[in-house]
Every structure is written in C-alpha cells, then in structure tokens.
Design a protein around this nucleic acid. Structure first.
Lengths: 158, 158
DNA sequence: CTGGGTGCAAAGTGTTTGCACGTTG
DNA sequence: CAACGTGCAAACACTTTGCACCCAG
C-alpha cells in the first residue's frame, strides 16, 4: 500500500482507482465527488457536513447520504481516510494525505487543533512491545479549552 | 473534589452521597446498585452489559436501562467514572477508583489492556501549553492485536 | 449486457426523554 | 408531602440495509 502523505489530488485518484479495481468495484461520479470534496476542503468532516458540501458543490449529482457513508467506510477500510471518535456525536473523517498527527479538541467550540510528536509515537511503540501487543494504530486526543475560548471566558468574568 | 484513586467502596459511597446532596439529588437503591456493581466487578462496561449484570445481581430492583444511562452520565459528570470511546459501538465506562491509565484495545477479541506512562502524560502537558490550550483530559488508545490473538493467528496459518 | 452502485425509505443501533406513578428526605 | 427518580415506551440521532432502477466496464 502506497503512503499517501502529501499527495496531490491526481495521485490520490490513481490510488483510489487502483483500490477499486483490485476489489472489483466501480469508479463512479459519486465516489469521486466524495474524494474530491474532501481534498478540496481539507478539513475534519462529519458524514452529514460532507454530504451537505457535496450536494452544494455537485447539485447535478443528487448524491444520497447513504452513498457518503458507504464511500467513507470504503475509504477508511482502504486507509485513505481516517476517523476520529467524537464524544457522543458520531465520527469525523479526514483525508489521509498529510503526515500523521493527533488532535486537540476544544470542549467549548469544538475546534480541532492538529499536532504531532515523535517522542510520544516512539513511546507508544515501546509500550506495545512490552505487552507483546502488535500495534497497528492509535487514537490520541487531548481535550480542553482552546486559547480563543479561554479569552472569551476571561472577558465574561470581568 | 476528592481524588478517588484506590478507594474502598465505603469511601466511594460517601463521595457519591455527597455529590448527590450538593446537587439536590436523591440517593436511591438504583443509583447505589450501579456504583456497587461497577465496584464489585471492576471492569470496562458498556451500558448494556452493566444493565444485564445489575439485573442479574439485583433482580428484585427491576432496574431499567434508562436509569443505567442516567446514572452513568451522572457519575461521569461527577468524575467518578470515565468513558472510553469505542469505534462505532458506543462507549464503555469504568469506575475511576484506580490510578490514571490509558488503554490498548485488541481489534480481534476486544480485550482491553491498561497501561500507564508518565513520560507521555508530561509530553501531552507540554504540547497543550505550546498551543495555549488548557488541558483538562485526554483519550489515548492503542489499537492492534493482543499477544493471545497473534498466537491464534499463527496457529491458523500452519 | 451483467454485476456492482445508487437513491430512497425503512430498519437498525445506541441513547435520551415525556409521562404517570413511586420513593426519598 | 413536595420534589426528585424510576420504568416504560416513544422519540431521537446516527448509521446501515433492502430494493428497484441505473450505469460502468
């Protein structure tokens, strides 16, 4: 499986078509619209918000939300997108075309800040090894209050 | 707020009653059954599995699953239990009476292994500070295959 | 032209809520 | 005895699925 970090859209598309072909699946306008929309609006999407954006961008396609779900699941299984588990309100998905990173999530405004730390990654590897655990992935999310919301809170207190 | 690590049941109960009193809530058999069952069967519970266990242990109470949800939410807000996000199939809850730790989750058998690493905790703190983020909690879960399941896989391959 | 894909609506999940009755303080 | 809590079932939110038609290969 190629490493899709930092790839341009054309290369992502080639990989996607390849995955489809290997699994006897077909390349459709709808499937492309999902990938393209995620690429063009690099962000963390809920299936719902992605669905709305696709409808707005490609009104002629008349995409259904079921297809968005189906495609996101397909892309996730193919490791082209990754998902973040979110408290209670479902998952968010992001296209995997950037270097690995984790997330800080503001409890107040839901803003997502990405960060990356090699040392922690190494440490995780060590821990897994210690327990004879074959480490295939992880989820690390820091929760708290982002700097903007902290300032808002201070202003209110005055 | 007291630190409920390593506490015996009696002390947990006192704290729980205290929280209830402070919020003008009542101490009921059902609420106690939830706390006691979690204490007696130290484990990671889905609301459903906890509900079943309570029904089995206290058949005379005729508890409803809605009460289990309500009580778990109450306990979580009061920081007496914590929850782990679980892929798509909801959350699991554990009583917070042990030292802080994170989780390794086997993708095959769903076994949960607890671990603790001070260095990572420190690093998380540093990262949050760097972004002006007020860090109030985190979720770190490593996914992979536990040693038992790796052995089973090997056996099949032979 | 055949098998997989799609939109739609219905069915599944997991969780929350309205209500009448029950219990706590 | 006032208020909060409970069980029940209905409602909810999110996601998956069955089906008839559609389209890519």
């Amino acid at each position: 499986m190629p490493d899709i970090e930092n790839m341009q859209y054309d290369s992502l598309l080639v990989i996607f078509k390849d995955i489809l072909k290997k699994n006897n699946l077909k390349f459709t306008k709808q499937r492309e619209a999902v990938l393209k929309t995620m690429y063009d609006n690099s962000d963390h999407f809920s299936p719902e918000s992605l669905y709305m954006l696709i409808k707005k961008t490609y009104p002629e396609l008349n995409v259904g939300i079921a297809t968005v779900y189906r495609t996101l699941n397909l892309l996730e299984e193919s490791h082209m997108v990754t998902s973040l588990s979110f408290g209670s309100s479902g998952k968010k998905f992001e296209l995997g075309n950037k270097p690995h990173h984790d997330h800080m999530i503001c409890n107040i405004c839901d803003e997502i800040i990405e960060f990356e730390d090699e040392e922690i990654e190494k440490k995780q590897e060590e821990i897994a090894n210690k327990y004879g655990f074959k480490h295939t992935g992880h989820l690390m999310q820091l929760y708290g209050v982002c700097s903007k919301c902290q300032q808002k809170q201070k202003r209110k207190e005055e």
